[in-house]
Nucleic acid binder design. Structure first.
Lengths: 139, 139
DNA sequence: ACAATTTGTAAGGAAACCTTGTAAGGCTCC
DNA sequence: GGAGCCTTACAAGGTTTCCTTACAAATTGT
């Protein structure tokens, strides 16, 4: 049931994506995200996040573009292939949740998700999406 | 809140116990457990489980005694220090669950535990305690 | 008795992190 | 407007925790 996710990735055209890469796909949206942001949300060092990004760049799933607002920084963005992969992953994720609902009860699983999200918001707020990235003062 | 557990171990006299060691402390009871059983329940290879056990032996938390029923096998048992450590860990675990209940509602947390146990029973039955270990036929 | 299986071990390797250190761009504040 | 501090990213090297492959000894089934 959870194996659905792993095997659904492995069998697809995105079979070279491994669990570690999740720290990028989970958080990156269209506008792109700084390495520092990825590291913070994934609760890992910037160096480790950088290695994952390097690997995804080499595989053609993401690219680094200069941040127009801060010349020190780069924005990690999905390539078209990366967007397809992300969409596929999210579809699989929804399927797992659906399967859980069918097996254990839709309402119970919905309550589970709600409670877990609440716990994460309290225990790991750094992992929550920040809708607006803080902008430098000179922007 | 979850950090309670980690830091509660680290600050104690059992500060040299790390998360990896959990695969032993979680499953070993007084009568002892075979390496193969630990590996199966923890869903890892016998070699990896063996390394963890080696480390715990060196630290004085467990010992290997010959299995009277099978001369190939050894039973992994807790030393007195190991039993104290296990008891401490279980106490901390109960405290975390209690804190979660106070923060998010006792009933909701009880439901969470129930549902997760149900899911584990279906998805990872190998991790469930086998009350009676299968005995060799000549026993 | 003999083949197949089970139990545990040994050696070497790989994945996914980390720490330490460097360099460059930006911000603050007098 | 320049000095000092912070932030961003990268590089090199190390550690932890697993794994794969290969093997010896005890047990089991035929």
């Amino acid at each position: 049931m959870f194996g659905q996710f792993r095997s659904g990735i492995e069998r697809s055209e995105f079979g070279d994506i491994r669990p570690t890469h999740g720290c990028v796909f989970r958080y990156v949206e269209d506008e792109g995200l700084r390495l520092t942001e990825i590291a913070e949300r994934a609760n890992m060092t910037k160096q480790s996040a950088g290695e994952v990004v390097d690997d995804l760049v080499a595989r053609g799933y993401v690219k680094r573009i200069p941040d127009p607002n801060d010349r020190r920084a780069k924005l990690i963005c999905l390539t078209p292939q990366g967007e397809k992969a992300q969409a596929h992953g999210r579809r699989l994720f929804a399927e797992v949740e659906q399967s859980l609902g069918e097996r254990f009860g839709q309402e119970r699983i919905a309550q589970l998700r709600e409670l877990l999200e609440e716990i994460v918001a309290v225990e790991a707020p750094y992992a929550m999406p920040h809708l607006a990235r803080p902008q430098p003062m000179n922007a």
